[in-house]
């Protein structure tokens, strides 16, 4: 056993060690919280910078303030896919459109529940090139909410979008993909990704 040199120093060393330990434990707890904080932080960074193909939530569009930039035509193409275990049919009215930045356009999408039970689907959008994502604004999108379909039901879903005029000049083609997931068994919850509108 340790022989204390003098009682007062021995106690104070033990106290000091204990204090250090608690201070360090605080760092540990803080970093654990930081790990969880990374989740909303990540979303925040994605939204603010547009990195990661995120297109953000519902966009408030004031027709009076926006004029289409007729000097540019952007090719937008749409791809639709259903994820593993999601047997719905899902397609876009057309594969692509040409739009001017600043012009409001609509594209219709269709989903059909091919099964014999009621199901809930969630479409998740993603845009390339990543530098374009933050300039692609959706004023109305079925991806903002879950879609409940009865067996055999066919639903037409409009999506309205406008491309900001600040879109980098070197972007001529923009691709938007929707991935449709089966969320029937998910507990009802607000999207973890933060904004009520986004993916």
């Amino acid at each position: 056993m340790r022989k204390p040199a003098a009682d007062s120093t021995a106690i104070s060393l033990q106290q000091r060690n204990g204090k250090t330990a608690w201070q360090l434990a605080l760092i540990v707890v803080g970093m654990f919280g930081f790990g969880f904080a990374l989740v909303p932080l990540y979303d925040l960074l994605c939204e603010v910078t547009g990195l990661g193909g995120r297109t953000g939530g519902a966009y408030a569009y004031d027709p009076a303030t926006v004029q289409p930039d007729k000097s540019r035509l952007i090719q937008v193409n749409f791809t639709t896919n259903t994820n593993a275990g999601m047997p719905w049919e899902f397609w876009a009215e057309k594969g692509g459109v040409r739009v001017h930045p600043g012009e409001l356009r609509q594209m219709n999408f269709f989903v059909r529940n091919t099964t014999d039970r009621r199901m809930i689907g969630q479409a998740v959008p993603s845009v390339v090139p990543p530098s374009a994502a933050q300039y692609f604004h959706k004023t109305e999108c079925f991806c903002f909410e879950q879609q409940v379909l009865e067996p055999g039901e066919l639903l037409e879903m409009p999506m309205r979008f406008i491309i900001a005029k600040e879109l980098p000049k070197n972007v001529q083609t923009l691709s938007l993909s929707y991935e449709l997931f089966d969320v029937t068994n998910f507990a009802a919850r607000v999207s973890v990704a933060g904004s009520e509108g986004s993916e």
Binding site: T82, A84, G85, M86, P87, T114, T115
Partner: peptide, 15 residues
């Protein structure tokens, strides 16, 4: 075959 069996390896071949 079309819908598969979720939670197993049986994929939804309708896709």
């Amino acid at each position: 075959v079309y819908e598969g069996v979720p939670g197993t390896s049986m994929q939804a071949f309708g896709n």
